[in-house]
């Protein structure tokens, strides 16, 4: 196990930021922390890197306890916090040199720095002062800093926040690339981002772990009930009756009036079957005008509500 988080709790005064969190991460995994803002993602990352300490519980990196043997443990970590810790008065070259020495890196300096700059594509700004760089470049310089010393574990806190779409795509593919060489933990509040990069998702809400699964399973289990949203013009009761009378329909939920006069329903099937054509036919035969029909895609909020509801049931 590269990372062991064992019943970790963190309190800020009265506020509970992380609540009895336990998980472990193996070598080579690319793990995403998914959760809304304030869920405890950054706090957890700050505890893993030793910037904060847990109120209760233990964290170990490659077998070294982060509080008992911090120096050994920290040697295995490359960390990019939410705000890259850049000395803006330095050039990229000076900054990376500084980190190289700070981390007491033993790898031959010139080649190592060249390789990193090549990988994160900052070779062209190597001699420029960081103050004058764009947000995208700064993020990459921060990433370069985290990569110094070739750490086994890379921790990236919201690495794509504040970047433009082009830069987001670049950073994502970069992280994918890095994921083939080392273990990566990254946090995000965007499901699709985690789906694109990670092979395991930890969903965190209110400091608790509410799901630990692969992204595919997660979206299958959650949005996988194949519910259909349908918008129809006509009499509400009549539409409901038509929908309920369809075979394989488990539940019909009224979502209210949309677009002024259209009734929206959510139709939940008994099993994972595509009901769209059946619904359309039945409604049209019943004399109603169908103006919209689509699978219900769950938003992150709905996923959370769903997961939390699931947890409460258990």
């Amino acid at each position: 196990m590269l990372v062991e988080v064992d019943h970790v709790t963190k309190r800020y005064g009265d506020k509970l930021a992380v609540d009895d969190l336990s998980f472990s991460i193996d070598q080579g995994e690319v793990v995403g922390f998914l959760g809304p803002n304030g869920a405890g993602k950054s706090t957890t990352m700050n505890m893993i890197t030793g910037y904060l300490s847990a109120t209760e519980g233990n964290i170990s990196i490659a077998g070294y306890d982060i509080l008992e043997e911090p120096i050994e443990a920290k040697k295995h970590i490359g960390y990019l916090p939410e705000m890259p810790p850049l000395y803006v008065d330095m050039t990229v070259h000076e900054y990376l040199d500084f980190l190289y020495e700070l981390k007491k890196c033993k790898i031959p300096r010139r080649q190592h720095l060249e390789e990193i700059c090549e990988a994160v594509r900052i070779t062209d700004v190597f001699e420029r002062v960081i103050r004058n760089l764009s947000k995208g470049y700064r993020q990459r310089v921060g990433l370069a800093g985290a990569l110094i010393g070739s750490p086994e574990l890379l921790i990236l806190d919201e690495p794509t926040v504040g970047l433009d779409p082009q830069q987001i795509i670049e950073i994502r593919s970069l992280i994918k690339e890095l994921g083939s060489k080392c273990t990566v933990i990254l946090s995000s509040h965007i499901l699709s981002e985690i789906e694109a990069v990670c092979n395991r998702v930890l969903v965190i809400d209110h400091g608790r772990l509410i799901a630990d699964d692969s992204p595919d399973n997660l979206s299958k289990n959650l949005s996988g009930d194949a519910s259909v949203h349908v918008r129809v013009l006509g009499d509400e009761e009549g539409i409901r009756k038509t929908l309920v009378s369809l075979p394989k329909v488990k539940e019909v939920v009224y979502n209210g009036l949309k677009e002024e006069s259209a009734h929206e329903f959510r139709v939940v099937p008994e099993e994972r079957v595509d009901l769209r054509s059946d619904i359309a036919k039945a409604l049209v035969n019943g004399g109603f005008d169908v103006i919209g029909l689509r699978f219900a895609e769950m938003t992150l909020e709905e996923i959370f509500l769903d997961l939390i509801a699931k947890e409460d049931r258990e």
């Binding site: 910037y51 120096i71 920290k74 810790p85 000395y87 803006v88 700070l102």
Partner: peptide, 14 residues
């Protein structure tokens, strides 16, 4: 203020 202390405090130094 600049959050650079995060780099210092997570580096392998005492």
């Amino acid at each position: 203020r600049l959050k650079t202390e995060q780099a210092l405090l997570t580096a392998p130094i005492s």
